[in-house]
């Protein structure tokens, strides 16, 4: 299998008419199902609530039952067909369920959907709920009414289309996206200020390509959820060759070196200078000699080499 195959993930690239490219997290059938169930529940509650209210209000009328029946049919029709259309048009592609589960319907070109698109995708929901089973499944004497949905068409359609679109989405030219939070590698300050000092020890000639920069960013984004031991284990894969390359002391903490690389790659010169200044104010000078027990288990900030401390306390 060639590595050139497109990577699998629930993402879609959308190019807007203004030629701007966005990447959206697609919502497939399983992300949509809770929103669908919630919307169904809301509709059912409102429908039965209104029905009871109407029944109570019209109980004194001579034709009360007929009025309730007519209103029930009318409400059922409106809720079934126009709930989705109303909310998706009014609230920019979101029903109440979609708001709750952070989903949104957009056009395939990234623009908000319009009323026609909302109507089309909601009217075709019936097609997505097919194949419909006959009532005769339960009773052979029942009329052949195809009313029990299997939803297989929707599931198969979402599985087979690259943007996970059901039949209604294909017809309306829409996709459903998930609006979860996005991560950024830019907003991470190393809590150990000595990373600013160690960053100054990285040779000026050391060049960072985009792949390495992304790796360092990824490490900083995620290191806080890892134990100290695991950080050490992971970071040493890259840190060990770099420690040799930069001629640092062998017991330099791999985690701290990764933080120093982050400082070097992602922070501006001004931020680095501020960091060094804060470090001078808060960190006492450590002895020049390496710690008495130095091993590969010298983890965390305590194992920053004496060499690095001596250098980053000197004026730059």
């Amino acid at each position: 299998m060639p590595p050139s195959l497109k990577k699998l993930d629930c993402f879609a690239r959308v190019i807007t008419p203004e030629n701007i490219e966005f990447e959206y997290a697609l919502a497939g059938p399983f992300q949509r199902l809770p929103a669908f169930i919630f919307d169904f529940f809301i509709r059912a509650v409102v429908f039965f609530g209104l029905l009871i209210l109407v029944a109570v209000l019209t109980s004194w009328l001579p034709l009360g039952q007929i009025v309730v029946t007519i209103l029930a049919l009318l409400m059922f029709f409106l809720f079934s067909w126009f709930y989705g259309i109303f909310f998706e048009t009014r609230y920019n592609g979101r029903t109440l369920g979609k708001m709750l589960f952070k989903l949104r319907v957009i056009s395939v070109d990234g623009r908000p959907i319009n009323a026609v698109q909302a109507a089309l995708r909601n009217f075709l929901r019936l097609a997505d709920m097919s194949l419909m089973l006959s009532l005769q499944v339960f009773d052979p004497e029942a009329p052949p009414a195809y009313v029990i949905p299997t939803m297989l068409v929707g599931l198969i359609s979402m599985t087979l289309t690259p943007r996970m679109q059901r039949v209604g989405d294909l017809a309306a030219g829409t996709i459903v996206i998930s609006e979860g939070k996005h991560h950024s590698p830019w907003n991470h300050q190393p809590e150990d200020l000595r990373a600013f000092g160690l960053a100054e020890l990285i040779p000026a000639t050391f060049q960072v390509n985009s792949s390495l920069a992304q790796t360092i960013g990824l490490y900083m984004e995620n290191r806080k959820r890892l134990s100290t031991m695991r950080r050490h284990e992971i970071a040493k894969h890259l840190a060990e060759p770099l420690i040799r390359e930069f001629e640092l002391l062998p017991d330099t903490s791999p985690d701290l070196l990764m933080c120093a690389l982050y400082v070097r790659v992602y922070l501006s010169e001004e931020q680095r200078a501020q960091g060094r200044e804060r470090m001078r104010q808060t960190t006492p000078v450590r002895p020049m000699t390496p710690p008495p027990v130095s091993s590969s288990f010298s983890l965390g900030p305590q194992s920053v080499s004496a060499q690095s401390m001596s250098v980053d306390n000197s004026p730059k």
């Binding site: 299998m1 590595p3 195959l5 990577k7 699998l8 993930d9 629930c10 993402f11 997290a25 697609l26 919502a27 497939g28 059938p29 399983f30 992300q31 809770p34 979402m158 599985t159 087979l160 996970m164 998930s178 979860g180």
Partner: peptide, 27 residues
């Protein structure tokens, strides 16, 4: 190549994993 994976390696919710399972199954 350890960073050349066919599936994008990142944290996901259970619902995302279910959706991704469909994509893997399709391919």
């Amino acid at each position: 190549q350890l960073d050349k994976t066919e599936i994008v390696i990142r944290q996901r919710t259970a619902f995302e994993l279910l959706d991704l399972s469909l994509l893997v199954l399709r391919r």
